[in-house]
Nucleic acid binder design. Sequence first.
DNA 1: AGCCGATCTGGGAGCGCTCCCAGGTGTGGC
DNA 2: GCCACACCTGGGAGCGCTCCCAGATCGGCT
Lengths: 351, 351
Amino acid sequence: MWVSEGGAVGPRAGDDERPTLEDVAAFAGVSRSTASRALNDDAYVSAAAREKVHAAARDLGYSPNQAARSLVTRRTGAIAVVLSEPEARLLDDPYRTAVMRAGYRELADVGRQMVLIFSDTREDLSRTVRFLEGGHVDGALVFAPHRADPLPKALRLLRIPIVFGGQAAGIRRGVHVVDFDNEGGARLAVEHLVAAGRRRIATIAGPQDQSAPIDRLAGWRKTLLDAGLDPADLAEEADFTLSGGANAMSNLLARHKDLDAVFVASDMMAVGALRTLDAAGRRIPDDVAVVSFDDNATLAPAMDPPLTSVHQDPREQVHCMVETLMQLLEDHNLKPRQHVLPVSLAVRASS
Amino acid sequence: MWVSEGGAVGPRAGDDERPTLEDVAAFAGVSRSTASRALNDDAYVSAAAREKVHAAARDLGYSPNQAARSLVTRRTGAIAVVLSEPEARLLDDPYRTAVMRAGYRELADVGRQMVLIFSDTREDLSRTVRFLEGGHVDGALVFAPHRADPLPKALRLLRIPIVFGGQAAGIRRGVHVVDFDNEGGARLAVEHLVAAGRRRIATIAGPQDQSAPIDRLAGWRKTLLDAGLDPADLAEEADFTLSGGANAMSNLLARHKDLDAVFVASDMMAVGALRTLDAAGRRIPDDVAVVSFDDNATLAPAMDPPLTSVHQDPREQVHCMVETLMQLLEDHNLKPRQHVLPVSLAVRASS
DNA sequence: AGCCGATCTGGGAGCGCTCCCAGGTGTGGC
DNA sequence: GCCACACCTGGGAGCGCTCCCAGATCGGCT
């Protein structure tokens, strides 16, 4: 590595003094109290005073000291978004990326700043807990899909408002949850395949240590049984990755040469499955129909053929979570609720 | 959407009082000052007092109020990571995801909390500036690759320590920058192709409103000229996406049926190029050799064939940025520096 | 004229912490 | 025996803000 010294444009020396509210008040010729009221547009400030204060603030380049403010108001204006998930998963998972993005937007819309927290190792757990406890944030949106994850239970003991995205590990009641109707979505997908005359409908399930994939698998199974079809030996578990989906598809094809449809628990795995099917010479949807889950905007419609997929909108989920959290901030005794968001089927050429 | 009420496990009623340092001190039988010293392991605290205070803190479940602390210390322990980029780009770009991840890790390693900020619209700009000014964070790592982006200039006026990742729009001096050797990387790639006997070496360049792609294109051109080869008409610009890469490859093939190599400015675009080449019946690397840029860990080695790619490690970049920022935090008058990180060539089967 | 309420203002207190300073205790050297 | 110097402790001040309360002004009512 080499290093080159830049120009001599030094940082503004001295003058490290940021103006305080007192300075603004003095400049505007009013008291600190009046200045505060004007800037927070409280009631009972004369139009003249408000005008003078705002002008002073502008001229002095004033911005309030958040630490001082939150020391007295006991709120910070920041909300944590906690993603508890092994590192590798996150890099690959378009759903998580969408969640981060949506979190930022939705929180910005209600005037809150997002503080993103990744938490996947043991040390992370205690650091995360310490951070949330430290009063850095007013509340948290938590995504912790893994059943064995100790985080949700640890967080439950904290005294800050929390809303979970998806079922929280090992906790069924007493917490706020916003989840999608995973089982219902799987049902939609399989019913669609049955209605199209498919009879050998396999599934590539997601990791069975998470609620969502468990529910999707259950939905597939129940719907087959309801239609008088036999699910035996037609399920294969994979890990939500492209290559995992491809391998699972190989295994299914090897076991069942006659399968005519497959329900895949995520778009990413479906991409892998598509590749395997293509390599095996199966035409889609003529020989094998494919329906997946997620309906990721950049993935599902871009495939060849475009994927029929169960549509769930992460933004909608996050929106609902933020809404719930805002209510919780207002009323800490809000009764815990389980919101279940509906999903729909986006039908495309793959089925 | 339907909503089901959860169990009656209400939140801990009343008792909203978090213990303060004063409480801990009283409980331990020492003064507030001593308690503070013990918890911050200052010098001059007796072992006995330290022990008592720590026990008290543990028993009471004490965690310090960060707002109060940062009000007096004038530092928050948080660092902003600012990503200034159109929304669509971020969802797709594995490099940005890696940067977020690395930022979180590297900052955690030095005991700092990452506050992630997306900034791509006009409103975002003023919100971002306001946030950074508000004293929420001690400093910022800023990624703003686009030449026309007004953010860097705006941030330059702020009085908080900032380190840029990659060249900042329109600013060449007076700021701290950690960048990769983009031109040198392109040179490595092209020299490798020339050494392998390739003579018609095309390139798929990235968006020419950003520094990195500009430098990569320049490196390609210069190296060709140095080797006595003609770059004319052999460059095609694309937008860093898979489909963009595929289209660019089509255009190049249409213009030059005889091209025997292509240097692609990103892995993602290379994936698209690979598809096009495959569809056109070109064998890789026999007919056309492919070298790309980024060497993304989940992308480059997983392709068929695995991609030869210029290796740059986002974690290394972020590490250097964090290091620089920490120095800057110590000494606000640190002379601005431009760090240029070396890159290397990971040779695989595609060339 | 007197009074009441609505509107506006300024001063004081205090959020929970860190830091400075004055003071108290013990140990060693002259 | 006394001073110098470590070590340790507690109280006070103050960071920059919001909120409460007392007071001032003014119009409109009895």
